[in-house]
Design a protein around this nucleic acid. Sequence first.
DNA 1: GCCAACGTTGGC
DNA 2: GCCAACGTTGGC
Length: 156
Amino acid sequence: MAYWLFKSEPDVFGIRHLRARPEQTEPWDGVRNYQARNFLRDEVSAGDKLFFYHSSCKQVGIAGVAEVVRAAYPDPSQFNPESDYYDPKATTASPRWYCVDVRFCEQFKQVLSLARIKAMPQITELGLVKKGHRLSVMPVTIDEWQHLYTAAGETL
DNA sequence: GCCAACGTTGGC
DNA sequence: GCCAACGTTGGC
């Protein structure tokens, strides 16, 4: 099992939205970056866990945990001209973009803020704090996962 | 809203 | 294949 960090803008789709879904499950679609796509398509597997990160909002940071319940399949939104994520160059015969299905696991009582993450001595290699910090899907090592998860559980 | 740090596009 | 111009992300 592998660990990941997925970013989303909570004003568009946050962990509360996932939690409120009937099956607490949702396709993670709209990834339109090749490096992130490659992680999604080639490495993210059912059973993997991910940190649900809130970006571009008041409380920037890790909001909770979800798990992958279905591995990569073609992202339907690329074929939909009505969608913001429509890609006219994508065809069903050769899809360009992929999505996975995720299910809610846990919402932290308090968002683990980016400031706190950056202040953690154990977190120096994570994409969030290094180059490529714009990547919307990034791997997390088991050590990083444990440190971050522990930090999220500590009250200030 | 600003701006740094990327990623993508397209002319040559 | 290079690289300038442009677009996007995302913290602040």
